[in-house]
């Protein structure tokens, strides 16, 4: 199980919870299971929201294996110019 912290604008899609416990060994599995457990989050994930793991956004790291002790946030993808 991985504890995923949610940005507050995403919490209303997960019954207002600040964080949720989700099964999954990799970033991709957690995102898939997040969308299944909380269908309201699916559009956000499809729009590019991804996991920040120990301070690094892993939007393109779906195969990254998660440490169960890692600090994990579901955040929007942000990039520059």
């Amino acid at each position: 199980m991985v504890e995923v912290h949610l940005w507050s604008s995403l919490r209303r899609f997960a019954d207002g919870q600040e964080s949720v416990e989700i099964e999954g060994k990799t970033v991709g599995e957690v995102l898939k299971n997040l969308a299944a457990a909380h269908p309201g989050l699916a559009p956000a994930i499809e729009a590019g929201a991804g996991l920040t793991v120990d301070g690094t956004f892993l939007g393109s790291g779906r195969n990254h294996v998660l440490d169960p002790e890692a600090e994990v946030f579901l955040m929007m993808r942000i990039k520059g110019g």
Binding site: H5, D54, G55, T56, M75
Partner: peptide
């Protein structure tokens, strides 16, 4: 803990 949530490296 950064203003956006995650802890800074």
């Amino acid at each position: 803990k950064s203003s956006s949530g995650p802890t800074y490296p």
